[in-house]
Computed example of a mutant assay.
Amino acid sequence: MPRNIEIKARIPRIDALLPKAAALADRGPVEIAQDDTFFRCESGRLKLRTLSPSAGELIFYRRADRQGPKESFYHLTPTSEPDRLRETLSLACGQIGRVQKTRTLLLVGRTRIHLDRVEGLGDFLELEVVLEDGEPLEAGMQEAHDIMARLDVEPSQLIEGAYLDLLIQQRT
């Protein structure tokens, strides 16, 4: 199963961080509207990401809910019928929440920089360092720390869990 090292951090404003990220990037920025529906899943997290009426992907992932760089295992399955798949999974598994965001994607080598404006939550940075098969975690963690430092993101800004967790915490 593919894996990466991931961090999430709360940031004051995307427009303040975008020039720094763009200066590091090999490619981007690309803006993407994403609508993620989460379903009950005992062995990790299962979400359907809708990108358009005819494009989406079912994403299963498993990672620790803690601050700082963490290993994430994931599996992606594309779909051309995200609305029908959402209906089927809702009936079969039950929905636990939905996250809508605008993502600005930039690439720095093998690292994906996501600048996310999450509806109801605010602005966030997410880094995903894609690991090779058998590559030690430490290499990806060091790369995540290096990019964090170059973007002036402090460890105190890091969050644990998923955007869905933050939205659920707000409701309680």
Rank of each mutant, 00 (worst) to 15 (best):
P2M: 02
R3N: 14
K8I: 13
K8S: 04
I11A: 08
P12F: 14
P12G: 11
R13L: 03
A16I: 09
L17F: 06
L18D: 08
P19V: 11
K20D: 13
A25R: 00
D26C: 04
E31L: 11
E31R: 14
I32E: 15
T37G: 02
F38V: 00
R40N: 13
R45M: 07
R45Y: 05
L48Q: 02
T50I: 10
L51I: 09
S52I: 02
P53C: 11
L58P: 03
I59Y: 03
I59C: 05
F60A: 07
F60W: 15
F60D: 00
F60T: 06
Y61L: 12
R62Y: 12
R62G: 00
R66K: 15
Q67M: 12
Q67D: 10
G68H: 10
P69S: 12
K70E: 09
E71Y: 05
F73G: 07
Y74P: 05
H75N: 10
E81R: 15
P82Y: 08
P82M: 06
D83H: 06
T88M: 14
G94F: 04
Q95H: 00
K101Q: 10
T102I: 13
T102G: 05
R103D: 06
L115C: 03
G122D: 12
L131I: 01
E132M: 12
E132D: 15
D133K: 13
G134I: 01
G134V: 04
E135I: 07
P136H: 09
L137K: 08
M141E: 15
A144N: 05
H145Y: 14
D146F: 10
A149K: 14
D152G: 12
V153C: 03
P155H: 10
P155W: 09
Y163W: 05
L164I: 06
D165P: 02
D165K: 00
L167W: 04
L167V: 08
